[in-house]
């Protein structure tokens, strides 16, 4: 059992606050992705769990043990680094065996674990090579095999795919997902790539400016952003936002269109809709087309609604040209509302 509980973890570097009292529980065998832009504190949080960084406040629990006072070696974790950190003076075999030798396992067991994990990562033919003779992708495989060979309770991954080229990244992503699902370890995976996060995660924790904004399963995070930031960060293209003014109880006017919205809110709020939840209709938001980008399965239209840029993903059979006027109707059940003051979602 390796549930990870992060309780009130904060980190300051001088006058800069990298983490504001973070609370997060990662369930046993869960694959949790920490997602955020660079500088949001996701790597700092991961390094605090690993023990490579000390928290300024708070507690970290792995299973039934409080680990925030322990050295990395005593936490039952293994880590995969962004730049792989494969030891250049050791062969691939010795790299994978490194942690096992530190544990003083018998040679037969070391052999068994190295062979098994090398096979799992398809690097069994490279065992006698040095890291200088390996490609980036192969080094990445060695780093993952080395972590898995420890048979840790928790695997921590710090942007493990970001140094690979696009094609290799796709391939490794699918492979990692399979391997880690099979290993039944608890995983925390840090990335700034939302596609990677969506495709790998059981649960995504979206971070912004040292706080966890939302931690939920990928579809929830996508469909029901808890905050304006999540909607604008996740999705490519991101959510569209328009100001809404009150038009009677539970009714709001958005760029001249009357829509049913939250009843409890007062004053100005924000209307939000994903680009793919729009369709041309007789009645809707009046949009002037600016740019048309045919993408094959669909066409991305960048338009202007009430003077603000507005994107719509439309059927590629639709013929539109820059300068055209469209009326775009939002799908009623996909409309979301945000409070511009607190940035939080309104219901």
């Amino acid at each position: 059992m390796a549930e990870i509980r992060i309780r009130g973890v904060a980190k300051t570097f001088g006058s800069f606050t990298a983490l504001h009292s973070v609370d997060l529980t990662i369930r046993d065998r869960e694959f949790l992705v920490l997602l955020g832009a660079s500088g949001c504190g996701k790597t700092t949080l991961l390094r605090i769990v690993a023990g490579l960084e000390t928290a300024s406040a708070g507690e970290v629990w792995i299973g039934e043990r409080r680990v925030d006072g322990l050295a990395p070696r005593d936490r039952g974790i293994a880590m995969v680094f962004q730049n792989y950190a494969v030891f250049p003076h050791l062969t691939v075999y010795e790299n994978i065996a490194f942690g096992l030798r530190m544990k003083k396992l018998p040679q037969a067991e070391i052999d068994r674990r190295v062979t098994r994990n090398a096979e799992l990562m398809h690097i069994e033919q490279l065992l006698k090579r040095y890291s200088g003779q390996l490609s980036g992708g192969q080094r990445q495989r060695v780093a993952v095999a080395r972590a898995l060979a420890m048979e840790p309770a928790v695997i921590l991954m710090d942007e493990p795919l970001s140094n690979l080229d696009a094609l290799l990244r796709l391939e490794m992503r699918a492979e990692l997902k399979g391997v880690l699902a099979g290993s039944r370890t608890t995983t925390i995976y840090v990335t700034h790539d939302q596609v990677e996060a969506m495709s790998l995660a059981d649960r995504i924790a979206v971070m912004n400016a040292g706080r966890i904004v939302q931690a939920d399963d990928p579809v929830q995070v996508y469909r029901n952003p808890a905050a304006r930031f999540v909607g604008s960060f996740i999705g490519n293209p991101p959510m569209n936002f328009l100001p809404a003014t009150p038009a009677g109880p539970g009714a709001w006017e958005v760029a001249g269109l009357r829509l049913a919205g939250p009843a409890g809110a007062a004053g100005r709020i924000e209307f939000a809709i994903r680009p793919e939840d729009l369709a041309p209709a007789p009645e809707g938001l009046a949009a002037t087309v600016r740019v048309v980008e045919p993408l094959g399965p669909h066409t991305l239209v960048t338009a202007e609604v009430a003077g603000a840029p507005f994107r719509a993903v439309l059927d590629s059979d639709l013929r539109v040209a820059p300068g055209d006027r469209l009326t775009l109707a939002p799908a009623a059940d996909r409309i979301r509302w945000f409070d511009p003051e607190t940035q939080e979602a309104l219901t």
Binding site: A50, G51, L52, A71, P72, R73, I77, A78, M79, F81, Q82, N83, A85, F87, P88, F98, G99, M102, K103, R146, M150, L156
Partner: peptide, 12 residues
Amino acid sequence: ELEEAAWTLGCT
């Protein structure tokens, strides 16, 4: 990172 990797792999 090489040192940090060694720490996570059981080194002081």
